[in-house]
Design a protein around this nucleic acid. Sequence first.
DNA 1: TAAATAGTGTCTCTGAGACATTATATT
DNA 2: AATATAATGTCTCAGAGACACTATTTA
Lengths: 270, 270
Amino acid sequence: MTTKHQSENQSPGEQSEAEFLASYSMGDYERPSVTVDLAIFTIRDGVFSVLLIERGDHPFKGHWALPGGFVNPKESTDSAAWRELAEETGVEQFSGHLEQLRTYSEPGRDPRGWVISVAHVAFAPNLPDPQHGDDAADARWWAVEDLNLDGEVNPDAPPLAFDHVEILRDAVERVRSKIEYTTLATEFVGETFTLPELRRVYLAVWGAAPDLANFRRKVIKTEGFVEATTEKRTVEAGGRPPLLYRKGDATTLQPAMLRPGTDPEPGEQG
Amino acid sequence: MTTKHQSENQSPGEQSEAEFLASYSMGDYERPSVTVDLAIFTIRDGVFSVLLIERGDHPFKGHWALPGGFVNPKESTDSAAWRELAEETGVEQFSGHLEQLRTYSEPGRDPRGWVISVAHVAFAPNLPDPQHGDDAADARWWAVEDLNLDGEVNPDAPPLAFDHVEILRDAVERVRSKIEYTTLATEFVGETFTLPELRRVYLAVWGAAPDLANFRRKVIKTEGFVEATTEKRTVEAGGRPPLLYRKGDATTLQPAMLRPGTDPEPGEQG
DNA sequence: TAAATAGTGTCTCTGAGACATTATATT
DNA sequence: AATATAATGTCTCAGAGACACTATTTA
């Protein structure tokens, strides 16, 4: 990476970069507020869920929104997202995965003014119920399939604030596709886990699980996906106790885990 | 999409959302400048190339940067990117593809202050040489492989400004992977094209082309990727004249076109 | 032993890699 | 005819889908 950049030849009367910066003013361009929004996903009792916060204030009072907040100077949007993640989940040492989704900037997306939001997605194993926000607003996990992300299916779905329907749609699709070609499904289970547990992650996120036998073959044969331990999960009611595994050091799946039902049809119009 | 959100019951003394917004002030949070940066790719004489601009002013005077500019109020970052794209390429009706890459916000990435950049990637068929910038700076196409994106390989590579090495690395990888699982390779060729031409797109972008015969089989059998015309390309020197094709209406490739050389090894540590 | 869950074996089909062969043009 | 490029045919192998079968536990 090139970091020194003072190397160009400089005529005597010319300004150096240091002098230039010292005299530089950003001018009076209008500037937007920049926020981060977080789609924090977990699987609770086999249900693919996302954390939402009920707004206690206008605008969108009583509607549900993704947790988020302003980005401060001297921090990256990632840092801001990690900070919000800790605050909202109440977990100081968050063990999951966080990544940037995309930036939403459509004019009018926030009625208060010019607000650009950098959305992030987090994957986490079973998290506790969230702290109640200090602004008396509610915060809870919602099953993703209970949200009306694709049309008005569920009359009891919470109304979503801002453009968070769009963000959530993109976030859900990101998670669904990311567990196809990476090992991130292991972020939704504990330190050790069984293969049926890992398979239930795919079931929860995709709404359909790969065939049991083929899933095992795929996971076991993909070097570095999981590592077998010698212990078995103690099971309460009936059934053969499953072997426990630990995540391996692979990060990508090559070839990808295929979503069932997605018949290998040729590309379609989008 | 839920757009009406005035439906919650409101006690007599309580503020309505309209009243709230009328009295709302964004406060005096410090706000960043937000810019867009563009990685505009094309293929010129079989060479995968990107448009860079030589900076005429500090900071990074004499270094090469991605074209870009400030985002204005009342426009999305996509609109800003389209606007810059037209300005920088000098093409009013740009026929290619533009998409958001990701947002770069690391503190210190711009020595002038707090600047957050939303980077975009554009795919275009052979574009003309760019206009000279009005600030007397140079603007030209650079072969991607002549840039030192992965270590100091080429001593004649142009020095890159800001964090544009990182952005370009991400942008190149985006293009390389996007032509695997979408039909975007057709954005690099003209209205009609031959299969060998399309294959040379993969050769240019990946540095290696799929086997000729297997490539044909894949493209032809993927419904909606290309549509055969009845004409042939008139050829100047020797050889059988190839059939001309037109792009189909498919957008995704299922299964993906595989990069050659990438031995189907299991996932590795990243 | 029945029920429940975990785990194995195997047939088949699709699609990619490799590479030999045929087709159609110019000089 | 020689050369050059386009297009086809075919053998093989990896890996996914489907599903029958075996294993290990509790009630």
